[in-house]
Amino acid sequence: MKQELGWEPKLLGFLCRWCSYAGADLAGISRKKYPANIEVIRVPCSGRVDPLFIIKALRLGFDGVLVSGCYPGDCHYQTGNYRARRRMAITKKFLEYIGIEPQRIQASWVSASEGGKFAEVVTAVTKELKEIEHNQLFADEK
């Protein structure tokens, strides 16, 4: 099914409120240019993101899910991002094995001062999502 030209991927971002959310704020304040495909859900920590959220987002029609948290060591809750790292590692590998395009699940470390990096990450992710086609995984549902 040739998708229409003007198709824009829908990206869901889980941003940890202590670092990545602040980073995204900074990107906005300093007028950084980045595509508006991302919709943000603020989470207390990247460790809060449950694989169920990811697969549910894909089911609802998002083309990609970005989970972004603090750099290892900066976590406000000490170990939240370490746990998120392990969980994301096995979730990403397992969902690839099931048959979900790897580009659909993205993770990144963005600290509160890296407005620029956040913009880069979102641009890069959107570019990758544009290369692969629209999310057809659960297409036969209403």
Partner: peptide, 10 residues
């Protein structure tokens, strides 16, 4: 572990 399996993280 302090550093492990993070090649997929940007």
């Amino acid at each position: 572990e302090p550093t492990e399996a993070e090649d997929f993280i940007r």
